[in-house]
Design a binder for these strands. Structure first.
Lengths: 277, 277
DNA sequence: TGAATAGTGTCTGTGAGACAATATTAT
DNA sequence: ATAATATTGTCTCACAGACACTATTCA
């Protein structure tokens, strides 16, 4: 092996082709919260959470749905790649993004060896509803997440289609960590996208409890009832009013405005309290 | 654009060179807990946490210390790469590993474009102390982690050397997430390794509270005093005995054995209670 | 015997769960 | 008036922090 005196000298001789080469892609799991009108004028709108999916128009996985995503560019910072792709594919800009997990199964993509880093994006879907999505891009509502010791079953629907998949939970052998996930049933989604969705759901459920992440999914002003409904959708359970109000008390600031015309007592509008802690 | 009828047909024509190519590497942050003999025969051994570092013998970053790691192989699952590398570089086998974060700054490595996924490994260092490490591999004790609103300062030492670095904490602009980290001062470590170390310290601190991860760093049988000292080293603060015992009460099972000969009342040995929840 | 840790008892304050009660609106 | 949500009050229970006390060993 040749000896080099300086780093410059070494780099001049260096040949990148000596190392295995991979394509690197990102998958973006976009969660959006939106309102569902209730027919009863007295009832509050309910909230639902949706995932943004793209219909693949080319191989591999042609005609299956997949998460928005794409390849990282040659001189692009990994963390900036999802920002660019989200803007291109969906027109969405200035959005909360966080890295989830990097998947690197050699058989992930039949074309070539791909390493894929997944990101989770959170938005208030009502706020961007007017933006036109590409016509191969579509919101799917998360209508059911059934979890027990062994499996997680997820059901997504849009106007015409229904997507279902099942994830198998397994305790890792050696470790005392949480569960590891593997895909058990999946007919509609490309790649290992079901794993990404489940990881994101878990991450969101956890982080809503100890961060202020939820306010990325809220409009600027909101009632506590609305905020509570968002918590309930994400956590998948009802919360008691007084307990909820205690929890979020110092995360919000009251405004002077009220939301009226709802067929019942008007409720005060609140804002996110950014200076919290 | 040519139209393909089947996936097979498409794949035959497909040329991987159409996509930017990256090298993919893993960095492994190995945390080990070990005992420090106290000169006073009556005092309990204290515990310390150490990080495994390797001295680089080639460019880039020649003669700097870095985390064990290497390139992912062509047909290797990403998550299996750190297992192989750990075994080769250190002889360590059957170890708790979890993925931390994937770093992909284009200037990370002067040789070429590299994406690097970091993993955290946890071990009971006393249990493997007899294994001979390569002579360019060395444990550094984490002797100080000073954190305030703006910075995290970390000091590592081995017998001869002292490594210090400072990480700058910044609130992300858009997001309401936790802090984002950047390197402020670093003279001794290669690549972005200081970021990996700090991420791991944070992850460990968090997870020790809501998982059983700590038992990966314990011998099979241990006293509650020892376990408490490990918590204290990781959390960086003293804990009160009764509170601690309440917390870990259903994570451990008492054995019939006692640890004696310590110059004070013997203490019962406990085991990890695996069937917990 | 004394230093040191092991292990337990218990008081207090905080905070979540639960339920009740009151307030206010649009139809 | 009524249905529906908004908002607050408060009781109880679980649990963490804090401190005190007892137990036991070995040089």
């Amino acid at each position: 092996m040749k000896e080099y005196k300086t780093e410059e000298e070494f780099l001049k001789d260096y040949n990148p082709k000596d190392y295995p080469s991979f394509a690197v892609s990102v998958d973006i799991l976009v969660f959006g919260i939106s309102s569902v009108d209730d027919s009863n004028y007295k009832k509050l709108d309910t909230k639902k959470m949706s995932v943004l999916l793209v219909k693949r128009d080319s191989f591999p996985f042609k005609d299956k749905w997949c998460l928005p995503g794409g390849f990282v560019l040659e001189n692009e910072n990994l963390d900036e790649s999802p920002v660019r792709i989200l803007k291109n594919e969906t027109g969405l800009d200035n959005i909360y993004l966080e890295q989830l997990y990097t998947f690197g199964n050699p058989k992930r993509d039949p074309r070539m060896r791909v390493i894929s880093t997944s990101y989770m994006a959170l938005i208030d879907k009502d706020r961007i509803i007017e933006k036109k999505l590409n016509n191969n891009t579509c919101w799917f509502d998360i209508v059911e997440v059934k979890e027990n010791d062994k499996n997680i079953e997820v059901t997504l629907v849009n106007n015409e289609e229904k997507i279902e998949f099942t994830i198998k939970k397994a305790l890792k052998e050696l470790t005392t960590d949480r569960y590891s996930f593997s895909i058990k049933e999946n007919n509609s989604l490309a790649f290992d996208n079901p794993l990404v969705i489940v990881s994101g759901l878990e991450r969101l459920k956890n982080k809503i409890e100890y961060t202020d992440i939820v306010f990325n999914m809220m409009p600027e002003k909101f009632t506590l009832g609305e905020l509570q409904k968002v918590y309930e959708v994400i956590l998948g359970k009802k919360l008691l009013d007084p307990a909820f109000r205690r929890i979020i008390a110092n995360k919000v600031i009251a405004t002077d405005e009220y939301k009226t015309g709802e067929g019942h007592r008007p409720s005060r509008l609140f804002k996110y309290n950014e200076r919290n802690k």
